[in-house]
């Protein structure tokens, strides 16, 4: 599904250069739920951004469904992000001036889906996350957990094959965090959506199929779900 080969990411300023990712090789299978853990600044969010085609690697190749996507032009990258990938962020990243249903519809707008179809699919996505009664609310009228559920609805409205979640429970209390995690697990198990999640929460990470530990720009180990349980 996702294949990263020799990925490097270097941030350069006039005086220093920082190696954020060094020679990362990673394969994510279709339908897998992978979590990535590591200390702050170890490069896990950078890795997620590169997987999500939000940032370009300094070296290496990214393959998505067998297609090399690391060097595609902006228009094609935007199309892949729109059709194949869904994003969930720690700070939700909802557009504050749009209400819940308009926020959820956003990915479909860039796919030129008709307004009625957009509405229908946005409602379905909101029902899935249990927020169909809040369609006219604005983000600032919702709790953190509700905002994250809106973000999940937005991520799934386009029925992407992959969801990339960057600390989706990071801003939530444990109850809300569990709720969000349950939704993600449900998406993975029932719909077969591939999920890659960056987290600091070991407990949530242990609920996923595979845990990748990251340190200093490199994965240090990978554990199977079975190994983790034992």
């Amino acid at each position: 599904m996702i294949l990263l080969s020799n990925i490097e990411k270097v941030y350069r300023t006039s005086s220093i250069q920082t190696l954020a990712l060094r020679n990362v090789n990673l394969a994510v299978a279709k339908g897998e739920f992978l979590s990535i853990m590591g200390p702050s600044g170890c490069g896990k969010s950078t890795l997620l951004n590169i997987m999500g085609l939000l940032d370009a690697p300094s070296g290496g190749t990214i393959k998505l469904d067998g297609q090399t996507v690391s060097n595609l032009p902006d228009q094609k990258l935007a199309k892949i992000r729109n059709e194949k990938l869904g994003f969930i962020f720690q700070s939700y990243h909802l557009i504050t001036d749009l209400n819940v249903i308009d926020n959820v519809e956003l990915p479909l707008i860039y796919r030129n889906v008709s307004a009625s179809e957009r509405k229908k699919r946005a409602m379905e996505a909101l029902e899935k996350v249990g927020l169909s009664a809040r369609t006219k609310h604005y983000p600032n009228q919702l709790s953190g957990g509700q905002r994250q559920r809106v973000a999940i609805a937005r991520a799934i409205v386009g029925r992407p094959e992959v969801i990339l979640a960057d600390e989706p429970t990071g801003n939530l209390d444990s109850v809300m965090g569990d709720e969000v995690m349950n939704i993600l697990l449900q998406l993975n198990q029932q719909d077969g959506t591939t999920i890659v999640m960056v987290t600091h929460d070991e407990a949530q990470a242990l609920r996923t199929q595979r845990l990748l530990r990251f340190f200093d720009g490199q994965p240090v180990n990978t554990e199977s779900y079975a190994t983790q349980l034992s």
Binding site: R81, F87, L106, G158
Partner: peptide
Amino acid sequence: YSEIGIRRALGATATA
């Protein structure tokens, strides 16, 4: 810029 980042992540091209 934040909104632009969201839109780009959701599939908007630079031209859009």
